[in-house]
């Protein structure tokens, strides 16, 4: 943090606030890794019917 009288650069507030850092870390990771990953895994398509038909002959 800057000493009194000096102007504190804005980015200093950003990088020195533990809660803000925790928030950024959690959000990016939760959205791009966990959420995106879980969404993809839960939306996998089944094996197409015509493929199954061609193999099983039915």
């Amino acid at each position: 943090m800057a000493k009194e009288g000096e102007k504190t650069p804005f980015w200093l507030y950003v990088i020195e606030d533990p809660m803000l850092l925790l928030f950024m870390g959690v959000t990016i990771y939760a959205v791009f890794y966990l959420l995106w990953g879980v969404m993809e895994l839960s939306n996998l398509p089944p094996i197409p019917e015509d493929l199954k038909k061609s193999i099983l002959g039915r």
Binding site: L44, I47, P48, L56
Partner: peptide
């Protein structure tokens, strides 16, 4: 790649048919 959801029963059936053919 592609990933399809399947299950043991379905995959075994496909596997057996493929091998037999």
């Amino acid at each position: 790649f592609t990933t399809y959801k399947t299950n043991v029963h379905e995959f075994n059936a496909l596997y057996d048919a493929f091998v037999e053919k």
